Amino acid sequence: MSLLEVTDLKVSFNTADGVVRAVRGMSFTVDRGRTLGIVGESGSGKSVSTQTLMGLTPGARVEGRALFDGEDLLTVGEKRMRTIRGAQIAMIFQDPLSSLHPLYKVGWQIEEMVRQHEPGAGKEQARKRAVEMLGLVGIPQPERRVDDYPHQFSGGMRQRAMIAMALALNPKLIIADEPTTALDATVQAQILDLMQRLQREFDTALIMITHDLGVIADMADDVLVMYGGKPVEFAGRRDLYYRQHHPYTKGLLQSVPSATGAKGRLRPIPGQPPSLINLPSGCVFHPRCEYVMERCRVDEPPLAPVPSGLGEEGREHVSACWLPHEAVGLGADAERVRRRAAGLDAGGTDDVDGGSR
């Protein structure tokens, strides 16, 4: 049994303009000691989905199931959730300055969390734990810096302090929501190396939410790609980077320099992400897809297995796209793939470039 099993999660919000369908049927699992990367453009539902698991989306209409160690996070009461949040599931946010209280010392905030979840821990024991954790994440002179305020820390130091707070109670799962976005490249690399090292030491499961596909390439075991509030592809890291099936995944990989390895201009995905109030019919990505067919405009594709063979044995690879499985990797040009798909849809021969196989 996986540590976390999320099944058909749906999250929506009532607004003056209509119902925002922020998450529209999200399913995934996270095993102990493994890292799940969740990627996608802003507004794709990445953060809302994980915040809902933590009980941080008040006013939302939530459906589905999220079993954490056999307990459904979506149905537990607020009192029970307070005992889970921080102690068993910790969260690292993008901006630590807004997550740390500016009027309280950093060490005191770690001590308070320890004492809240471990009633038997005294003040001296909690302070010792705070100093130990600050030292563990690489903050120099932790005995002195434990009494500093958040504004006295640099951005990288504040993020290290947040990691120290997240690990203070040895949680089973850490959710990191864009933890390095505001940091420069050198500090970002240090923070990611630190998180990987501590994850191995504590055998903690990790959900990494990010726009940075380079971060995912370094850290993730499995990758979930989201678009328009829904997962569009899920695969092991190696399969996703070398044999991606969904055109949106291909677009994400081509829009960053490190993914293409080629000189010249980047290839951005044309158009804009869809409104979560007025979603397109059929496949929500079809207005921006170079491989679009008539079927894409009418029918929404389900997540279906894709043959891969590059990842770990038994790792799942699914994609929500009407393209044939032979288009894995999308090495062919768009017109050739469309002709191939049209031939399969019509039940005809495997016609490629006018010939048959």
Rank of each mutant, 00 (worst) to 15 (best):
A182W: 06
I163P: 05
K250T: 12
Y227G: 03
G347S: 09
L279N: 10
A235I: 07
K172M: 09
V48Q: 01
L224N: 01
P274D: 07
D353W: 13
A217W: 04
D351V: 15
P231I: 04
D177S: 09
R315E: 15
V328E: 03
E132T: 06
T57R: 13
M226N: 02
V62H: 04
L56N: 07
D8Q: 10
Y227N: 02
E316D: 11
T349Q: 14
G347L: 09
L56A: 11
Q254S: 12
V146E: 02
D203P: 02
L136W: 02
R32Q: 15
A164N: 03
P302W: 11
G120F: 03
L134T: 01
E63D: 13
P301A: 04
P280T: 11
V352S: 09
V19K: 14
M165W: 08
R61G: 09
V225E: 00
T83C: 06
G214S: 06
E132I: 05
C283R: 07
T180R: 04
A66K: 00
G354D: 12
S308M: 08
D221I: 03
T7P: 03
V318R: 13
G107V: 04
L213G: 00
E201I: 08
A164M: 10
R65Y: 01
G70L: 04
G329A: 07
L100R: 05
E312Q: 13
A130D: 06
T57I: 11
R129C: 09
A332C: 05
W322K: 00
L136A: 12
H151Q: 10
I38G: 00
P171L: 00
P140H: 04
R237I: 10
V39M: 08
M208E: 05
D17V: 07
E111L: 08
G228M: 10
R144D: 12
Q244W: 13
R336K: 13
M54Q: 08
A90H: 02
I207C: 01
S255Q: 09
V48M: 07
V48I: 15
V6C: 01
T50W: 06
